[in-house]
């Protein structure tokens, strides 16, 4: 590790003496919160390599390699369209059901797999954490970033489905770019909590897949929001993922509920709070992570 770069402990020394540019001070509670985050920039190269490792290892292992990224959402799409679209006839506001479901399934799938991967990410890198210094927050961040590649491939699939149905995409589709940023931030917020908490409670990684599974049914992914009876709808509206998947769906299909803009604002606010809290919580766990992991 290179402590020569922007040292996050320098400011913590309460600099009353002049220090040479290259000096690092190590002491208890070292590093203020803000400096800790700033430090990440110095480690962007390591982050790049961690993301690359994640992708490389994941797709080298599977039989179909990178083809698997495409096949997995495709099969899910086929099954969901058959069960919920064709058999159960879930209403989709006149949009072909495959387009309706895929436009929400992509952000949801990204969200769920990010949390699940991030949750066990610190423990599976325990051997490195014990032996070398680097900002450990890079590990859940790299899990969240690596998932974006799957999302991108999913978009290609979506484009294919749009083409099959002869839908002409409008400029609205461009909203997917900022929406993906929002999605990634929400995923990061939850991932920080899950990954740090898993260091303390080792059985969390068994619970999270189950929770995300249930959560999907509490999010309008396979059905439209207005299918939910009014008095239960608040359950979906306090769910920060509801506006995110709804907005994705709107960007693709133009189908939106009038309450979308305020919901997005609420979701953004909630995610901001969660993200900030997640950073603080992560920092707290991070302090003695190498000792307890």
């Amino acid at each position: 590790m290179d402590h020569g770069g922007p040292s996050h402990h320098r400011s913590a020394a309460g600099s009353d003496e002049s220090q040479s540019a290259n000096e690092t001070v190590i002491q208890a509670g070292g590093g203020s919160f803000a400096v800790h985050i700033m430090d990440l920039w110095a480690y962007r190269e390591l982050l790049r390599i961690l993301v690359w490792r994640e992708l490389k290892v994941r797709y080298r292992q599977t039989l179909l390699g990178a083809g698997w990224i495409l096949l997995q959402p495709l099969l899910t799409l086929v099954v969901m369209s058959a069960v919920f679209g064709a058999m159960l006839r879930v209403p989709s506001h006149g949009v072909p059901y495959p387009i309706f479901v895929l436009s929400a399934l992509l952000p949801w799938g990204y969200f769920a797999s990010s949390i699940n991967r991030a949750c066990s990410s610190l423990l599976s890198n325990a051997h490195i954490i014990r032996k070398i210094f680097f900002p450990r927050i890079l590990i859940p961040i790299s899990a969240v970033l690596a998932g974006l590649v799957d999302l991108l491939v999913g978009m290609v699939l979506l484009a294919g489905v749009l083409l099959v149905y002869g839908t002409v995409p409008s400029l609205r589709l461009l909203f997917i770019v900022p929406l993906t940023l929002v999605l990634a931030l929400v995923a990061l917020a939850f991932s920080l909590w899950a990954s740090a908490a898993n260091v303390r409670y080792r059985d969390l990684s068994f619970v999270v897949p189950f929770v995300t599974q249930i959560w999907m049914y509490l999010t309008p992914v396979i059905y439209p929001l207005d299918l939910v009876p009014g008095r239960y709808r608040f359950l979906l509206e306090i769910n920060p993922m509801t506006p995110v998947v709804s907005a994705f769906r709107w960007a693709v299909t133009g189908d939106a509920s009038p309450s979308l803009p305020p919901m997005i604002a609420i979701s953004l606010g909630l995610s901001g709070v969660l993200l900030f809290g997640g950073l603080i919580f992560f920092r707290r766990i991070d302090r003695d992570m190498a000792e307890v992991i």
Partner: peptide, 24 residues
């Protein structure tokens, strides 16, 4: 490990001048 930033000291402090790598 303290000098390498891997763990935090409970008290006291250490100063390192120069780029530092660890091979644990």
């Amino acid at each position: 490990k303290i000098l390498a930033h891997i763990i935090e000291p409970t008290s006291g402090r250490a100063r390192i001048r120069g780029r530092c790598a660890s091979l644990l």
